[in-house]
Design a protein around this nucleic acid. Structure first.
Length: 270
DNA sequence: ACAGTAACCTGTTTGC
DNA sequence: TGCAAACAGGTTACTG
């Protein structure tokens, strides 16, 4: 669920609610996330003032005056801002308590994570080796084309590889390839420079439009006040197996590529 | 360096 | 209906 648009939607939602606010306390009900929540973080954060919420890839960078919290939503995570007396649900693992409310982290599958660093977060081992941001200027068709030379992986896996470009998960990979009319199984190294230019445009457009719509809610994802995202209504191929292609009416097909489901139009995409 | 797979965990859907 | 298997949006770590 949380791919780049959902994380960015969350960032935009929570930043105005918590920036400038002092963390009064932390409650960790279950520290068993993907990596155990560090006790050092739980000790360090209370008392600090949040001054910004940034994003790198699918990580939220919650910056306070003494360090940065790296928060990843994993597969099923969400952050909401709730009133102080809202009873926590079964999977509400962590609270950041502020004077004006509680930032509550829910994650049924516990693939999310929380890290704390007092150094440059971009040099953290989890962020250090990531590829370009898809919505930034350094992500171009030429960059993608160059990186793909000699690569035999399916292009769908290629664009989901965070060393190549960040933020493109299973849903938006299928959607972008449909827009660029590229078959998801095509070898990354066998796609022309011109088609990579089209793919970069497609990725940018899909992600930007999804952010405009507040992300895609298929299952767990909700925004900061519990609202769903509406981009699901714009999906062209994802989860539409057997339904007619919106462009040519051919039934949408599905395939397993690298243990993930890919959706595509067998007529439009080559 | 690259490609492929298993692993983390729980909830829901599918199939017998 | 009941139960077990398969599957789900992500990423890392390991293998060959």
């Amino acid at each position: 669920m949380p791919e780049l648009p959902e994380v960015e939607t969350t960032r935009r939602g929570i930043e105005p609610l918590i920036s400038g606010q002092r963390v009064r306390d932390i409650v960790v009900r279950d520290r068993r996330l993907r990596w155990p929540v560090s006790p050092r973080w739980a000790r360090a954060l209370p008392g600090t003032v949040i001054h910004a919420v940034d994003r790198r890839a699918k990580y939220l960078l919650i910056r306070s005056d003494t360090g940065t919290t790296l928060l990843h939503l994993g597969m099923s995570g969400s952050l909401r801002f709730v009133g102080p007396d809202t009873p926590p649900g079964k999977h509400d693992h962590v609270d950041l308590i502020f004077d004006r409310g509680v930032l509550r982290f829910r994650d049924p599958r516990r693939f999310g994570s929380i890290h704390w660093t007092t150094r440059d977060p971009l040099q953290h081992r989890l962020l250090r080796d990531l590829g370009p941001e898809p919505l930034a200027g350094d992500f171009t068709g030429d960059v993608l084309w160059q990186a793909s030379r000699g690569r035999r992986v399916a292009v769908k896996n290629f664009i989901m590889d965070s060393h190549i470009v960040v933020g493109v998960g299973n849903i938006y990979a299928s959607e972008s390839l449909f827009r660029a009319r590229i078959h998801p199984k095509r070898a990354a190294g066998r796609i022309s420079q011109a088609r990579y230019a089209a793919l970069v445009d497609a990725i940018r457009d899909v992600l930007s439009e999804a952010i405009e719509d507040g992300g895609t809610t298929l299952k767990d994802f909700v925004r900061e006040r519990g609202q769903p995202g509406y981009f699901g209504q714009q999906l062209q191929v994802y989860d539409r197996e057997g339904e007619p292609c919106r462009r040519c009416k051919t039934p949408i097909k599905t395939a397993r590529i690298g243990q993930r489901s890919a959706f595509y139009c067998p007529a439009c995409q080559r």
